[in-house]
Design a protein around this nucleic acid. Structure first.
Lengths: 294, 294
DNA sequence: GATTTCGCATATGATTTAAATATGGGAGGT
DNA sequence: ACCTCCCATATTTAAATCATATGCGAAATC
């Protein structure tokens, strides 16, 4: 049973006449008579009682008529929904980010919510390795992660490097009173560092930098979660080194923040997605927005 | 959006491959590729992400896929239901009858319930005039009525005439003790007669018969409802004259029944339906059954 | 009651649409 | 590097749909 036939049938039933229905459908009368006949033959059912010039629905016809509206409306709704999803008006954006990149994620979510208020978000958190794997397995479309990352299978928008900041509790006694420090000032301070679950990451970058300057850092905590790290820091466990934007996302009370004057390495992050992957409208919008911003 | 396309789409999604889907659909691969493309163009949406030889549903595609089953099932169910209604397996038989013809109606309902257990009944009760009007207005398909009736607009199956019976309460004192009586025996007995709301009917037939024999009946009740009539009779109000079958339908306690030896007129009834009207399967079955029986 | 009007049905030719065959190209697998 | 598998395009063939012309019967009008 083709939908055109159903639509024809409904119009005939509505108009109570083939001729009038044909006009409404912008076709000639004979093909409409023919299509009705074909529908009846296909269903092997008499749909209209023809008596002279009057058409009256049979019981089978009534039955079909009652269902027809549901079917046609269902199809129209489906088309509308599919197009809404495609246009990004509706849908789910599955996106991941490192905790330390949460500030960027926050920014993009805000942006998408303005452009496409109907879009839902499924957010994954994890280290760069985990998230790239999840892109590969299509569990997420996009990820905002700290570099380095395997970029042979991913396209990316680079986010401008941002400085690492040193953070320590404002209750910490005997620390310098300016707003920037040198690496040597950290000597002896217990350090809490971000640690990735696998692969080379910031932990290695920071420790390498210490080694370059000839220090041997006193690392007391390695933690993969930036929010936890800052919480521990605020509690006075020690000092930590995090990218600047991380501080914006997880702003915490009782923290003092310092520039690190001779810490040359900067935190690099990027928005990643699968090479040649189909991307939803919201995903494309995030990419476009990132490219414009950075 | 044509259903064929939807079916094709669903098959492709199920099989995850155009080639395999084409085999399942018993068509060649190229037209299937083409139809998928046309569907995408029609919706202006990308349904599958094509990457080399793999087809993966996009979010829009997923959305469409989820709805497609509902739509296709809905259509199949509808077809099945329409055909069921047409074949009489399901449906509503709208039928009317005089109260005095209720025995025939009972018989036919029993018959249809055996043949088509799914059929529902809408029963109208009324006098012949009312019921023929209801046929004309399509409120009922069939009517079993006492004659005479306007037969220019109706087709009919005649039911063999049946004798009128005289009925009186068994509490009635001083009445004859045989099982048949003559009209003259009714002289003086208060009579309760069926009366139609309009047109000429049994009331006139019975009174005419009395006049033919030179009696002047003592009519104390005129009532259009046979069941009420018999109830009044059982209560000892008087005697009544009804067709034999009526007694079978509304069998009542405490009644004595007599043949009327010199009452020549017999009760005539018929099954009526609109000339050239479309009739449902159950209606046609009732007609066939009636024709066979009588 | 004759005539006109209206609406459905059929027939035939034209147009559009779908399917089949043949073929090319790109991604995986060997 | 080769072969295999699968999708896409091009072209031809078949089928379905539509339009035009026309006939027929029932209602409406005079």
């Amino acid at each position: 049973m083709e939908i055109r036939r159903l639509r024809y049938f409904k119009t005939i039933a509505d108009e109570g006449q083939i001729t009038r229905a044909a006009k409404k459908l912008h076709i000639a009368q004979p093909p409409l008579s023919q299509q009705l006949k074909l529908l009846e033959e296909e269903l092997n059912v008499t749909l209209f009682e023809r008596n002279g010039r009057s058409l009256i629905l049979t019981e089978s016809g009534e039955t079909l008529y009652r269902k027809t509206s549901d079917i046609l409306n269902g199809i129209e709704d489906t088309i509308a929904e599919v197009q809404a999803v495609d246009s990004g008006v509706k849908g789910v954006l599955k996106i991941g980010a490192n905790k330390s990149c949460f500030a960027y994620l926050l920014q993009q979510i805000t942006h998408i919510r303005e452009r496409f208020p109907g879009v839902q978000f499924k957010i994954r958190e994890g280290d760069t390795y985990t998230l790239t794997k999840e892109i590969y397995e299509r569990e997420i479309e996009l990820a905002i992660v700290r570099l380095p990352a395997n970029d042979t299978e991913f396209s990316s928008v680079l986010i401008p490097p941002e400085p690492y900041m040193f953070v320590i509790s404002d209750q910490w006694e005997g620390f310098c009173d300016k707003d920037s420090v040198y690496m040597k000032d950290l000597d002896g301070i217990p350090l809490l560092l971000l640690h990735r679950l696998s692969g080379k990451g910031q932990f290695e970058i920071v420790t390498d930098e210490f080694q370059r300057l000839g220090f041997n850092p006193n690392i007391v905590v390695e933690c993969p979660d930036a929010a936890m790290l800052l919480s521990l820091t605020a509690a006075g466990t020690g000092g930590t080194i995090v990218p600047k934007s991380t501080l914006e996302a997880f702003s915490q009370e009782n923290l003092r923040v310092f520039h690190l004057k001779d810490f040359k390495v900067q935190a690099e992050a990027a928005l990643l997605w699968g090479k040649d992957r189909f991307l939803s409208k919201p995903a494309r919008e995030v990419i476009a927005n990132m490219e414009e911003l950075y």
